[in-house]
Amino acid sequence: MDNLSLLSAVEEGNILQVISFFEPSIKKNLRNTPYQERNDLEQEISMKILEKINKLQSLEVPTFFEFIDCESG
């Protein structure tokens, strides 16, 4: 799965696909807490992503020429 399919998953609101995209990263970061807490943390992270997905869907990004333009802003 590449970045663009991540984008379409976010746009469709396909939370399962988004989470499975980040699965390796989540697993790695679970090591920040003792193993007894890891299941809890995994769930909390999934919930956090779900919470933030709306914000990501409506993210405003510049177009190519807006980005190139060094005079504005």
Binding site: N3, L4, L6, L7, V10, V18, F22, S25, I26, N29, L30, N32, T33, E37, D40, L41, E44, I45, K48, I49, K52, L56, L59, V61, P62, T63, F64, F67
Partner: peptide
């Protein structure tokens, strides 16, 4: 725009996961 947005999302969620796991602990 699509490319830029996908990168922003990737970065945003990666950071979210990292900082949230630290915060949780």
């Amino acid at each position: 725009q699509r490319y830029y947005k996908s990168i922003k999302i990737l970065g945003y969620i990666s950071k979210l996961i990292y900082f949230y796991s630290i915060d949780f602990d």
